[in-house]
Amino acid sequence: MPEGSASLQLAVGDRVVYPNQGVCRVSAIDVKEVAGQKLTFVTMRREEDGAVVMVPEGKVLAIGVRKVASAE
């Protein structure tokens, strides 16, 4: 991610809310080559049905992904 860009610090195992998809758990953060460029992807699995969603790390905030609020 370019320096100075806002990002959401995620780790494998974090629970997040993905708008219009529901609650997901981060299952992987991997670098993949797409069209000759190396990009970091956040892979999330929906808790409702296990569907897998992959989002480029740089788009996580723009999409509206946020961490699940704690009970505290």
Rank of each mutant, 00 (worst) to 15 (best):
E57L: 15
E3A: 13
P19F: 07
E48I: 14
V68R: 05
N20T: 10
V55W: 05
L8R: 07
V65K: 04
F41I: 13
A28S: 14
A28F: 06
E48K: 13
R66Q: 13
V17C: 00
V23M: 09
E47V: 06
G22L: 04
I29S: 01
V31W: 06
S7G: 12
A62S: 09
A35S: 10
E3Q: 11
E33S: 07
E72C: 11
Q21S: 07
R25A: 04
K32L: 14
C24Q: 00
Y18I: 14
L39P: 00
V53D: 02
E47R: 02
V23P: 04
R25K: 07
Y18M: 14
G13H: 02
G22S: 04
E57M: 15
P2V: 12
V23H: 05
V17R: 06
P2G: 12
S5Y: 11
D14E: 03
A11H: 11
R46W: 03
T43G: 01
K38G: 03
Q37K: 14
S70K: 10
E3F: 06
Q9R: 14
V23T: 07
T40Y: 07
D14S: 03
R45S: 06
V42C: 01
A28M: 06
V68W: 06
E48F: 14
S70A: 12
C24M: 14
C24T: 00
S27A: 10
V60C: 04
E33M: 13
R25Y: 12
K59H: 14
V17S: 07
V26F: 01
A28N: 07
V55H: 03
A11R: 14
P2W: 07
L61S: 12
M54P: 02
Q21I: 15
T43R: 05
L10N: 01
G36W: 03
R25T: 13
D49Y: 02
K59G: 07
P56K: 05
E3N: 12
G50E: 03
D14I: 04
E47S: 03
T40C: 01
P2K: 11
T40W: 09
R25D: 01
M1E: 11
A6D: 10
C24P: 00
G36Q: 02
A69S: 13
P56I: 11
D14G: 01
V12Q: 02
R25P: 00
A71D: 13
M44I: 04
G13N: 04
P19D: 07
F41R: 02
T43K: 05
A51I: 09
E48H: 12
A69R: 08
R66T: 14
F41Y: 10
S70I: 11
V16T: 01
R46I: 03
Q21C: 07
Q37D: 05
E47Y: 04
S27Q: 13
E72K: 09
K32A: 07
S7D: 10
F41M: 13
G50W: 05
Q21W: 15
V26P: 00
V12A: 02
D30T: 14
A35C: 05
M54N: 05
V23R: 04
V53M: 14
M1Q: 13
M54A: 05
E3W: 05
E57K: 08
V65E: 04
A6K: 13
A6M: 12
R15G: 02
V16L: 08
E57V: 14
Y18Q: 02
I29A: 01
E48R: 14
G22R: 04
S27R: 05
V23K: 03
Q21K: 14
G64S: 06
A69W: 06
A28Q: 07
K32R: 14
V68T: 06
M1G: 13
E57D: 05
S27I: 15
D49E: 02
L8M: 10
E47G: 02
M44E: 00
V42L: 08
V12D: 01
M44S: 00
M54G: 02
V12C: 00
Q9F: 10
V42R: 00
E47N: 02
E3Y: 05
G4S: 13
T40A: 06
L8E: 07
Q21H: 15
E72Y: 08
T40Q: 04
A51L: 11
D14V: 03
R45F: 09
Q37C: 02
Q21A: 09
D30L: 13
R15A: 05
G36N: 05
Q37W: 05
S7F: 12
R66A: 09
V53K: 04
K67P: 08
V31I: 11
E72N: 11
L61G: 10
L61D: 09
G36T: 02
G4A: 13
M44A: 00
E57R: 06
E72V: 10
E72G: 10
S7N: 11
V68A: 07
G58H: 15
K38S: 08
V68H: 06
G13K: 01
L8I: 09
E72A: 10
L10D: 00
E3I: 11
V23G: 02
K67Y: 10
K67S: 06
D30Y: 14
G50T: 02
S70C: 11
L10W: 04
D49L: 03
G36S: 03
M54L: 08
C24L: 10
V53G: 02
G22Q: 05
G64W: 08
G58R: 11
A6W: 09
V26W: 01
A51P: 02
V23A: 05
E33G: 03
L8Q: 08
S70H: 10
P19A: 09
L39K: 07
V16K: 00
A71C: 11
T43F: 11
R46L: 03
V68C: 13
V26Y: 01
V42K: 00
P56F: 09
S5Q: 13
A6N: 12
D14K: 01
G50N: 07
A51W: 15
V68F: 07
I29C: 00
S7Q: 12
V16G: 01
L61E: 10
L10I: 08
Q37M: 11
Q21P: 01
A6H: 13
G58D: 15
R45D: 01
E3V: 12
N20S: 11
G36R: 03
Q21R: 10
V34W: 08
D30P: 01
R45E: 08
E3H: 10
V65C: 07
V53Q: 03
I63P: 07
I63D: 15
G36H: 03
R66P: 06
R15S: 05
M1S: 13
V42N: 00
V53H: 05
K59L: 15
P2C: 03
V23Q: 03
V42A: 01
G50S: 04
V60K: 02
A11N: 10
K67C: 13
E48N: 09
K67V: 14
G13W: 02
T43Y: 13
S7C: 03
P56Y: 08
S70N: 11
E33L: 12
Y18R: 02
G58I: 10
M1R: 13
A28H: 07
E48G: 08
G13T: 01
A62W: 06
R66S: 10
D30Q: 10
V31P: 02
D14F: 02
C24A: 02
L39H: 15
V55R: 02
G64R: 05
E47C: 03
G58N: 15
L39F: 10
I63E: 14
T40G: 03
V26S: 00
L10V: 09
T40S: 07
V42T: 00
P56H: 07
V23E: 04
V16C: 00
V34F: 09
L8K: 07
Y18T: 05
P19L: 08
Q21F: 15
K67G: 05
M1A: 13
G58M: 09
L8W: 11
K59R: 10
K59T: 13
P56T: 10
M1N: 13
G50F: 04
G58F: 14
G4K: 11
C24E: 00
A71N: 12
I63N: 09
A11W: 06
G50A: 03
